[in-house]
Amino acid sequence: MKFRVSSRQLDVALKAVAALVVVALLYLAYTAWDYQRRTQTTTIAARAVDTLAEAVRREPRNPDARILLGQALAGQGRLNEAIEQFQAALKLDEDNPVALEGLGMIALKQQQWATAEGYFRRIVDKLSGGQIAGADERLERAYYYLGVTLIKRKQYEDAAGYLKEALRIRRDASDTHYALSVAYRELGILDKSRQELETALAFDPLLPEANYDLGRLLVKDGDLAGAAEAFRRAIDGAPGQPEPLKELEKLGPFSERLAKAEALLATDKKAALEQARIAAALDPKNVDAARIKARLLQELGSAKDAADAWEKVLQLAPEDPEAVAALEALSKKK
């Protein structure tokens, strides 16, 4: 299972600054239709590149102008052109952290791990001795991406060291805690790996990669219901990733889990709840599984968990009278 540094997430990271450039330069007139909105955004992004390219032509020795153009080009996927602009900026302003970060992100996207490591190390060398190093977001990102790059290069001990440096600057970075859990896992330090995994999920309960790893741990623990729900969160958070779906399907089939839940209702409600939770994770659109789970949680679980389960029933069956009544009853207990 891939973690943060995937092609999809790097695309988002590369486009983030480019999007800011677009907003700063041009008025974005949204329309009601999604297709029109996407078309217009693409056109405006192209105009932003043209505007920034003109700024570079006017001031070819302005490194900031070249960096902005490089960011905009990277956001459009024009990576070779972006590299040219970032490298030109470095000739004008040696070790500029923003230009180095742009080149490092592109190297990560292209899976050029050694090249990426070099760029992020240069940022660390440049910024780590600064007066604001303890609160420098640029340095935090460099530590994080250097750690991730070293994981890709299987240098897990060094990776853990840099990830911990990133956490000294930003303690609530769920992605960094998750990456550190991977480094510890590969080093065989399983108690710390799990601790970092749980911390990552405390900051971001929906983090797909962390939920996938948690699901695998819960299977080993024998908590199949918790594992099924973790795999479902991973699937919903990262559509198209095959690993969590394969693991979840191993806990099926759905029909057997639902049948067991129904059969156990009269004799063992805790066991019935476990089966219902697995069934609801296997088929989150099945109202029968969702209803049994909600009923049992209302009787055996916390009020919050029960309310969330009944809300799910309402999503599947709007204005369902049993769900409405249950939520009203739960609200009175608060």
Rank of each mutant, 00 (worst) to 15 (best):
A309Y: 06
A18C: 07
Y143M: 08
R170N: 13
V287F: 05
K2V: 15
L282I: 07
A280N: 10
D125S: 13
D213Y: 06
A225L: 00
A99S: 06
R4V: 13
G118M: 01
R232K: 10
L282V: 05
P284R: 04
A325G: 06
A307E: 07
V124N: 04
I83W: 02
R78D: 08
Q111V: 12
L150T: 02
R216A: 01
L139Y: 07
G226T: 00
N96S: 09
E247C: 02
Q76M: 13
D191E: 15
E274W: 08
G104F: 02
L314I: 02
Q241F: 10
R171W: 12
T39K: 14
D204H: 11
D236V: 12
R277H: 02
V5M: 09
E262V: 13
A202H: 12
V5T: 15
A183L: 10
L314T: 05
L10M: 09
K293F: 01
L190D: 15
K126E: 14
A329D: 13
G118C: 06
R61G: 12
D125I: 07
A45P: 07
A228F: 00
L314C: 03
Q315F: 04
W310G: 01
A173W: 13
V182P: 07
A272W: 03
E137G: 10
R194Y: 10
P208H: 01
L127H: 06
A72W: 03
G161L: 08
L14F: 07
E117Q: 15
E328S: 13
R138L: 08
D93M: 09
P63V: 05
L25I: 10
G226S: 00
V5L: 11
W33C: 13
L73I: 02
E94F: 13
